[in-house]
C-alpha cells in the first residue's frame, strides 16, 4: 500500500491505496465522492471525467498514485457551498440537458474544461469536444444547447427537444 495525498475540491485528501487502485475508486470509495460515475470502465463513456491539475481526464483510466500531489476537481466541487448550482449546472437544468443523469457529472466536467480553453465555442466545437462523453438518453441536443447557453451565447436557434 502507498500513501497518496492530493487536494480534492480544495481540501486536503489522503489515503492508503494499492498500485492498481484507480483514481475513480479512490474518489468514490475512499473519499465517498460518488458523484463521479463509472459507466463503461473502458475509457469510452466519460462518466468518470474529473479535472487533474486543471485538465479533464478519465479517472477510470488513471491510477490513484499518479495523482500524488495533484489538484483534483470533481462534480461535488462545482456548486457553491450553499448548494447554488454553477453556471454550467444551472444551464443543464434550464435546458433539460439530462434525463437519467448518469452521464451528467462527466458532461459537466468536460463542459467546464471546454469553456476554460474556449469560452465561446461554436456548436460544432461543443459536439467535437464531447467525443468522449456518451449519453444514452438525450440525443445530445439539449446537452449541446446547455453548454452553449452556459457560455453566454444565444441558443434560441439551436434545435432542441
Amino acid at each position: 500500500m502507498t500513501e497518496v495525498k492530493m487536494t480534492v475540491n480544495g481540501k486536503a485528501a489522503s489515503g492508503n491505496v494499492e498500485g492498481r487502485t484507480l483514481l475513480v475508486q479512490f474518489l468514490r470509495e475512499d473519499m465517498g465522492l460518488t458523484g463521479t460515475h463509472v459507466g463503461c470502465d473502458t475509457s469510452q463513456c466519460g462518466a468518470c471525467v474529473v479535472h487533474v491539475n486543471g485538465e479533464a481526464v478519465k479517472s477510470c483510466t488513471m491510477l490513484a498514485v499518479e495523482a500524488q500531489g495533484a489538484e483534483v476537481s470533481t462534480i461535488e466541487g462545482q456548486a457553491a457551498p450553499d448548494g447554488t448550482l454553477n453556471t454550467i449546472q444551472q444551464a443543464f437544468q434550464d435546458h433539460h440537458g439530462l434525463q437519467c443523469g448518469f452521464c451528467t457529472p462527466g458532461m459537466v466536467m468536460s463542459a467546464a474544461a471546454l469553456l476554460k480553453d474556449n469560452p465561446k465555442p461554436t456548436e460544432s466545437d461543443v459536439r467535437h469536444y464531447l467525443d468522449g462523453n456518451i449519453c444514452r438518453c438525450t440525443g445530445y441536443h439539449n446537452i449541446v444547447k446547455a453548454i452553449m447557453a452556459a457560455s453566454g451565447q444565444d441558443v434560441s436557434a439551436i434545435a432542441g427537444e
Binding site: S43, G46, V49, E55, A56, V57, K58, T61, M62, S110, A113, L114, Y129, D131, G132, N133
Partner: peptide, 9 residues
Amino acid sequence: IGDPAVRNR
C-alpha cells in the same frame, strides 16, 4: 487522437 480527456493523458 481519441477524445479530449484521452489526449490529456
